[in-house]
Design a protein around this nucleic acid. Structure first.
Lengths: 352, 352
DNA sequence: CTGAAAGCGCTTACAG
DNA sequence: CTGAAAGCGCTTACAG
């Protein structure tokens, strides 16, 4: 037999309505408050969440929809969002569509029919406007990582890293070390995010009068698909590049997956870093720092992204749309490690 | 205005009880079934989950409690559990206690008061018997990765990797390559799991008549604490070992964290693998394969662990305790890569 | 198999 | 500020 609000009402001699007011932090007499608190403690009462939700028509549930849960990279986002909403006694449901767009649509329908109070999602590319489905259902949504093409017609809150700045930081570093024969390993042309990283990177060189037309490839970019495939294609691409006459002195990996592919090529081909080629990467990864030649990179603040997205979402859930739509930009950090050779002094890169 | 079961009842001319029976897959007349299905589709009705839960006194919620959510390693477990329970329309709540045992206890209380239908948890060490709190509350629980000391007195279902076999596989490999001056980098003496890995490893050498007393260290094991600290202590330990007179020809890392620490020492000290020292590891990690010298290791089937734990938990939720308690053992796989030198032929390790 | 009625444990207007 | 009553959208015995 569970303790219910009725038991508290009976014990205190008050009505259930008053107990409910106490539970919902509404004004009640001080003496009643004390009495209720004492009784709740004594009977070890906890409100039945399901009943509260049914009556109040809320669900206190947040959905977080990612591309790939098996991919560790997004963990800090899941963590920071979960952590944020735990404080408000929200349940966070984590879902992933694994690059299956039919599945994405199914999951979205599921979340809508579950009546989630809000959603944080990662668009799969710049054409992804699925967030509209949530908006149509009256559910606030914040998108992460990508800016999408439909932003103008269908406004939405978004949180992204300062991709342009990150690209520029890496370019500046390479420039200082004397590199100008560079190859950019892109992942997908359909990503605003990747584009910004490349633009930030090339602008630095262009401003110094370098010919950046050779940086990007005549080869098609590595398509945006599931994790393992990006890695193996990145590996193949890396080899093609290094086999050319006059190979680049430095390669810019535009994200962590393509970097993993490239790195695996350096291993099996016994290509030495930074002696044979210098590497920089947009994104960091635990093991990038423990590699044979720790990778110089720009790291995203993934926890920061998750937390900022949560804050914005919470604000919308509470009905505050005064600054809608927001496009929050989270700062990135540069980590100089050991994968860039100094062509000017002939020595290999600084270690902070 | 939302469509409710009453609308379906009115439209079909049936009672809400009958509609409810349909929804719960109980026997109703075929003609009514057809009529109801047609009406549900026409009105685009979806049952209100909260109301169902309130009335039926279930929550359809599973808790999964890990040590560290920021740590990517466990992601496949989260994924596989979520994926499994999604099929049954359960919501999975992911929590972590971050090696804070007071927090662990708080979270457990939270989950209990949320009335979860079942829990999958990772004990923090072999003394952790917190699972009892769930059992006392009548909530089925399955533990992962560790076998705990209290198993005899307080039985519980558990799912673990075949740690003994994995340790033996690595030992056999080193033996075949001619290694016998070996150092074992342990993480914690309070872990049944680590013990089994070491036992599997040393038994192979002992059977061949080797003196295994030197394998383990006079140094205290690296304590079980939060991620970054294990890595930095692993790094320090690795250095101590390699600076000794007559350093080992091979090191066995007993888990991925300690391996990360050791690997980071090889980088900064420019210690070459496998020329200077051979390495094997129990656990795999995405980047272990793309390192300069891809690490020979034994990989756990983390998804398999998560799925098996889910299956057992589901069985218990459905009230079937016929085979309680279970201790499911999940197979591990050996991956020969490039971190072991062949002392017999003088060449470095096989690649596959 | 079906239906009328009660009730899950709360919150919500509405009087007082 | 407090309380009596209704009701959130279902499921559950219980008759029929």
């Amino acid at each position: 037999m569970n303790i219910t609000i009725k038991d508290i009402a009976r014990e205190t001699g008050l009505s259930t309505a008053t107990i409910s007011k106490y539970l919902n932090h509404k004004r009640i007499l001080e003496e009643n408050r004390i009495l209720i608190e004492e009784t709740i403690k004594r009977l070890d009462y906890t409100p039945n969440r399901t009943a509260q939700l049914l009556r109040s028509k809320k669900t206190k549930t947040i959905g977080i929809l990612l591309s790939d849960l098996g991919n560790y990279f997004w963990s800090p986002i899941i963590y920071s969002v979960t952590h944020f909403f735990l404080k408000y006694h929200y349940t966070v449901i984590t879902c992933a569509y694994y690059f299956n767009f039919q599945k994405e649509s199914d999951i979205i329908q599921d979340l809508i029919s579950q009546n989630v109070d809000g959603v944080i999602m990662l668009p799969h590319n710049r054409q992804d406007n699925m967030y509209k489905l949530f908006q149509d259902a009256g559910i606030p949504v914040v998108i992460l990582d990508q800016l999408v093409d439909s932003l103008k017609e269908i406004p939405v809150d978004c949180v992204i890293s300062d991709n342009y700045k990150g690209g520029a930081m890496l370019a500046t570093h390479l420039l200082e070390k004397g590199h100008s024969n560079i190859y950019i390993m892109e992942r997908s042309v359909h990503s605003y995010t990747i584009e910004q990283r490349i633009r930030g990177f090339t602008d630095v060189f262009a401003e110094q009068g370098y010919d950046i037309s050779a940086f990007r490839s005549d080869l098609p970019p590595v398509p945006f698909v599931e994790t393992q495939s990006v890695i193996s294609q990145g590996k193949e691409r890396f080899r093609q590049i290094m086999r050319r006459p006059n190979p680049p002195t430095a390669i810019f990996f535009t994200n962590y997956l393509i970097a993993s592919g490239g790195l695996s090529a350096t291993n099996s081909d016994c290509c030495s870093i930074p002696e044979d080629v210098s590497l920089v990467c947009f994104d960091d990864d635990t093991l990038f720092k423990v590699m044979h030649s720790p990778l110089t990179c720009v790291a995203q603040d993934l926890s920061g992204i998750g937390t900022k997205a949560s804050e914005i979402l919470m604000q919308r859930i509470e009905g505050d749309y005064s600054d809608f739509p927001r496009a929050a930009v989270i700062d990135v950090t540069f980590h100089s490690r050991n994968s860039v050779k100094d062509l000017l002094s002939g020595m290999s890169g600084s270690t902070k």
